[in-house]
Protein backbone atom coordinates (compact mmCIF):
# COMPACT_ATOMS: atom_id res chain seq x y z
CA UNK A 1 0.00 0.00 0.00
CA UNK A 2 1.51 3.35 -1.06
CA UNK A 3 0.98 6.14 1.47
CA UNK A 4 1.70 9.84 0.88
CA UNK A 5 2.50 11.96 3.95
CA UNK A 6 3.34 15.68 4.03
CA UNK A 7 6.74 15.97 5.67
CA UNK A 8 9.14 18.60 6.93
CA UNK A 9 12.17 16.62 5.74
CA UNK A 10 13.26 13.94 3.31
CA UNK A 11 13.57 10.84 5.51
CA UNK A 12 11.20 8.51 7.37
CA UNK A 13 12.37 10.17 10.60
CA UNK A 14 11.12 13.58 9.43
CA UNK A 15 8.23 15.20 11.28
CA UNK A 16 4.81 15.20 9.62
CA UNK A 17 4.07 18.69 8.25
CA UNK A 18 1.00 20.54 9.53
CA UNK A 19 0.00 21.66 6.04
CA UNK A 20 -0.99 19.61 3.01
CA UNK A 21 -0.84 22.07 0.11
CA UNK A 22 2.13 24.02 1.40
CA UNK A 23 4.19 21.22 2.94
CA UNK A 24 7.87 21.20 1.98
CA UNK A 25 7.90 17.55 0.91
CA UNK A 26 5.72 14.50 0.54
CA UNK A 27 7.12 11.12 1.53
CA UNK A 28 5.48 8.40 -0.53
CA UNK A 29 6.16 5.20 1.35
CA UNK A 30 5.30 1.55 0.72
CA UNK A 31 3.79 0.38 4.00
CA UNK A 32 5.04 -3.20 3.53
CA UNK A 33 8.63 -2.71 2.38
CA UNK A 34 9.10 0.82 3.88
CA UNK A 35 10.76 1.82 0.63
CA UNK A 36 10.01 5.44 -0.08
CA UNK A 37 10.47 8.31 -2.47
CA UNK A 38 10.45 12.03 -1.79
CA UNK A 39 8.38 14.57 -3.69
CA UNK A 40 9.66 18.12 -3.54
CA UNK A 41 6.35 19.97 -3.25
CA UNK A 42 6.32 22.56 -6.03
CA UNK A 43 2.99 23.89 -4.74
CA UNK A 44 4.55 25.19 -1.50
CA UNK A 45 5.19 28.60 -3.03
CA UNK A 46 2.15 28.75 -5.33
CA UNK A 47 0.17 31.98 -5.16
CA UNK A 48 -3.12 30.14 -5.15
CA UNK A 49 -4.45 26.65 -5.72
CA UNK A 50 -1.60 25.05 -3.75
CA UNK A 51 -3.88 22.27 -2.54
CA UNK A 52 -4.86 21.30 -6.09
CA UNK A 53 -1.29 21.30 -7.34
CA UNK A 54 -0.04 19.29 -4.36
CA UNK A 55 -2.91 16.81 -4.72
CA UNK A 56 -2.09 16.40 -8.42
CA UNK A 57 1.50 15.50 -7.48
CA UNK A 58 0.25 13.00 -4.89
CA UNK A 59 -2.14 11.41 -7.41
CA UNK A 60 0.65 11.18 -9.98
CA UNK A 61 2.88 9.44 -7.42
CA UNK A 62 0.47 6.52 -7.39
CA UNK A 63 -0.37 6.87 -3.68
CA UNK A 64 -3.53 5.15 -2.51
CA UNK A 65 -3.71 6.76 0.92
CA UNK A 66 -2.88 10.24 2.25
CA UNK A 67 -2.20 10.83 5.95
CA UNK A 68 -2.42 14.51 6.83
CA UNK A 69 -3.44 16.89 9.62
CA UNK A 70 -5.41 19.19 7.38
CA UNK A 71 -6.84 19.12 3.89
CA UNK A 72 -8.75 21.83 1.99
CA UNK A 73 -11.86 21.29 -0.09
CA UNK A 74 -10.16 21.65 -3.47
CA UNK A 75 -7.36 19.24 -2.58
CA UNK A 76 -9.92 16.79 -1.18
CA UNK A 77 -11.90 16.99 -4.44
CA UNK A 78 -8.80 16.00 -6.42
CA UNK A 79 -7.80 13.21 -4.02
CA UNK A 80 -11.33 11.81 -3.88
CA UNK A 81 -11.65 11.87 -7.68
CA UNK A 82 -8.58 9.64 -7.71
CA UNK A 83 -10.11 7.32 -5.10
CA UNK A 84 -7.45 8.21 -2.53
CA UNK A 85 -8.45 7.75 1.10
CA UNK A 86 -7.58 10.62 3.50
CA UNK A 87 -6.57 9.70 7.06
CA UNK A 88 -5.98 12.07 9.99
CA UNK A 89 -2.34 12.38 11.01
CA UNK A 90 -1.07 12.38 14.59
CA UNK A 91 2.05 14.16 15.87
CA UNK A 92 5.26 12.30 15.19
CA UNK A 93 7.61 11.17 12.47
CA UNK A 94 6.54 9.80 9.11
CA UNK A 95 7.70 6.33 10.24
CA UNK A 96 5.66 6.46 13.46
CA UNK A 97 2.55 7.59 11.60
CA UNK A 98 2.90 4.75 9.11
CA UNK A 99 3.20 2.26 11.99
CA UNK A 100 0.10 3.71 13.63
CA UNK A 101 -1.78 3.42 10.37
CA UNK A 102 -0.75 -0.24 10.05
CA UNK A 103 -1.94 -0.87 13.61
CA UNK A 104 -5.31 0.63 12.74
CA UNK A 105 -4.84 3.52 15.16
CA UNK A 106 -5.66 6.33 12.72
CA UNK A 107 -9.09 7.75 11.89
CA UNK A 108 -10.36 8.96 8.58
CA UNK A 109 -10.01 12.78 8.20
CA UNK A 110 -13.53 14.12 8.55
CA UNK A 111 -13.07 17.92 8.69
CA UNK A 112 -12.26 19.22 5.25
CA UNK A 113 -11.70 22.97 5.62
CA UNK A 114 -13.09 25.33 2.97
CA UNK A 115 -9.62 26.61 2.06
CA UNK A 116 -7.51 29.28 3.71
CA UNK A 117 -7.99 31.82 0.96
CA UNK A 118 -11.65 31.37 0.13
CA UNK A 119 -10.92 33.39 -3.02
CA UNK A 120 -8.34 30.80 -3.97
CA UNK A 121 -5.80 33.22 -5.38
CA UNK A 122 -4.38 36.70 -5.68
Amino acid sequence: MKIAIPSEGTTLESIVNQSFGRTHYFIVVDSDTLQFKVIDNQAASAQGGAGIKAAQAVVDSGAEIVITFHCGQNAADVLKAAGIKIMKAVTGSVFEVVQKYKNGELMELMEIHPGYHNHGGV
Binding site: A43, G48, I52, Q56, N74, V78, A81, G120, G121
Partner: peptide, 16 residues
Protein backbone atom coordinates in the same frame (compact mmCIF):
# COMPACT_ATOMS: atom_id res chain seq x y z
CA UNK B 1 -3.65 25.70 -10.48
CA UNK B 2 -7.24 25.78 -11.67
CA UNK B 3 -6.89 22.43 -13.46
CA UNK B 4 -6.12 18.87 -12.32
CA UNK B 5 -6.10 15.62 -14.26
CA UNK B 6 -7.17 12.56 -12.33
CA UNK B 7 -8.21 9.11 -13.53
CA UNK B 8 -8.76 10.12 -17.16
CA UNK B 9 -10.77 13.13 -16.13
CA UNK B 10 -9.92 16.83 -16.24
CA UNK B 11 -11.12 18.72 -13.16
CA UNK B 12 -11.76 22.47 -13.58
CA UNK B 13 -11.90 24.81 -10.55
CA UNK B 14 -13.76 27.91 -11.80
CA UNK B 15 -12.94 30.11 -8.78
CA UNK B 16 -9.20 29.70 -9.34
Amino acid sequence: NALAYVKNKLLIFPEL
